Simulated assay, not measured.
Amino acid sequence: MNTLIISTFSCTFDEFKNDVTTLFLEEMCKEFVTDYEFVKVNEHKSHLLMNCTDLEKLGAEMESPFAKEWDKKNNCKDTVYSIKLVA
């Protein structure tokens, strides 16, 4: 399922992208995120487009103690959308 996560954060975009890519997507979510792409909106906001095969597992990882602590440390707020093809 195509998923969009809009994030705001206090760290730089490069720090955010590096941490989310290496720690979250490629480690914690590697079993159910098959493809992803980051889009920089500005230095403290991004759009993350991904193909997620299990939204429940994604939600569980986003609520894990590690993710919650990282979010708190970096003042990260995420809004998650499921995307459907219209035409």
Results as ranks from 00 to 15, higher is better:
23 L>Q: 12
52 C>I: 01
24 F>K: 03
8 T>S: 08
30 K>S: 09
35 D>T: 08
63 E>S: 15
15 E>R: 11
39 V>G: 09
54 D>Q: 08
15 E>C: 03
55 L>Q: 09
20 V>Y: 10
27 E>M: 12
27 E>H: 13
76 C>Y: 02
24 F>L: 13
38 F>N: 01
76 C>Q: 10
12 T>R: 03
73 K>Y: 06
37 E>R: 14
27 E>C: 13
74 N>F: 01
77 K>D: 12
32 F>C: 03
16 F>A: 03
76 C>E: 13
60 A>S: 12
37 E>V: 12
44 H>G: 05
23 L>M: 14
17 K>V: 05
40 K>E: 05
70 W>F: 12
56 E>C: 09
22 T>F: 11
28 M>F: 10
33 V>L: 07
57 K>D: 01
73 K>R: 13
34 T>G: 12
73 K>D: 09
28 M>G: 06
74 N>W: 01
76 C>N: 11
24 F>I: 08
53 T>Q: 10
31 E>N: 10
26 E>L: 12
42 N>I: 04
60 A>K: 13
45 K>E: 14
67 A>E: 00
49 L>I: 13
67 A>V: 09
31 E>S: 11
53 T>L: 09
36 Y>G: 04
8 T>Q: 05
23 L>H: 13
64 S>L: 08
41 V>S: 10
79 T>F: 12
17 K>H: 06
53 T>F: 05
29 C>Y: 04
60 A>V: 10
65 P>M: 07
22 T>S: 13
57 K>N: 05
73 K>M: 13
16 F>I: 00
13 F>E: 07
39 V>S: 14
14 D>M: 07
36 Y>R: 06
60 A>R: 14
59 G>E: 03
70 W>T: 04
17 K>I: 03
69 E>Q: 15
14 D>I: 02
48 L>C: 04
11 C>V: 13
45 K>F: 07
28 M>E: 14
61 E>Y: 07
69 E>S: 15
45 K>G: 02
51 N>M: 07
19 D>L: 00
52 C>V: 14
70 W>I: 04
20 V>A: 08
50 M>I: 00
79 T>E: 15
29 C>H: 06
48 L>D: 00
42 N>C: 07
24 F>E: 03
13 F>V: 08
35 D>L: 09
53 T>E: 09
30 K>Y: 03
40 K>Y: 04
12 T>C: 06
43 E>C: 04
21 T>D: 06
31 E>V: 02
50 M>C: 05
9 F>E: 07
18 N>K: 15
76 C>A: 15
15 E>I: 06
18 N>I: 09
76 C>D: 01
58 L>A: 06
66 F>I: 08
11 C>L: 11
37 E>H: 14
79 T>G: 08
14 D>L: 04
66 F>N: 02
62 M>S: 08
26 E>R: 14
